[in-house]
Structures are given as structure tokens and as C-alpha cells.
């Protein structure tokens, strides 16, 4: 078996930052994409669902894989 290094991993969207906070800040190996929080989702419900132009961040912690 050979070591598979995913070339995309370096530019992977940081799941922690996507959640709202990443402790690694500028030193994170993943990408930190600035986004806008959906105010409806923040209130609890957004009828746009996956088609919303703003973010619906999940609060569940990302897997510990990295």
C-alpha cells in the first residue's frame, strides 16, 4: 500500500472555523473562510434550508480525526 496524500487536504474548509471558532487561527492548516451567519437560522429556523445564501453552522463538534 502506498501513502495517499490528498492534495485537497491543505485547502480543506476548516470544520472548526466553519463552526465559529478555531484555536489555531492563522496557523491552521485548513482554510478559514469568512462567512455570514444566517439570522433566521440563529433564531432557530430558516425556510431556505440548504439554498440559503448565508451560513447555517452546526454546533456539533467536528470529528476528532484531525
Amino acid at each position: 500500500p502506498f501513502l495517499h496524500i490528498d492534495p485537497q487536504s491543505k485547502v480543506k474548509d476548516c470544520p472548526w472555523y466553519k463552526r465559529g471558532f478555531c484555536r489555531h487561527g492563522p496557523h491552521c492548516r485548513h482554510q478559514h473562510l469568512r462567512r455570514v451567519l444566517c439570522m433566521n437560522y440563529l433564531a432557530g429556523f430558516c425556510p431556505e434550508g440548504p439554498n440559503c445564501k448565508h451560513m447555517h453552522p452546526r454546533f456539533e463538534l467536528p470529528p476528532l480525526a484531525d
Binding site: 465559529g20 471558532f21 484555536r23 487561527g25 462567512r35 455570514v36 451567519l37
Partner: peptide
């Protein structure tokens, strides 16, 4: 929790808080 972090590098002078917090959050709002 961020309170469990010993270091809070986003507080340091020159740090860009948006490198750490998304959605315009800061320590308090987060």
C-alpha cells in the same frame, strides 16, 4: 470551550480576530 484554552492568541497585539472567530464573533459573543 475557549475558556479551557490556556493561550488566547487572538488577544495579542496585532492578532486578527477574524483568523480565529468566524461570523463576526468575538470572545464574548462566541
Amino acid at each position: 470551550s475557549i475558556d479551557s484554552l490556556e493561550e488566547k492568541p487572538w488577544r495579542k497585539p496585532g492578532a486578527d480576530i477574524t483568523d480565529y472567530f468566524n461570523y463576526g464573533f468575538n470572545e464574548e459573543t462566541w
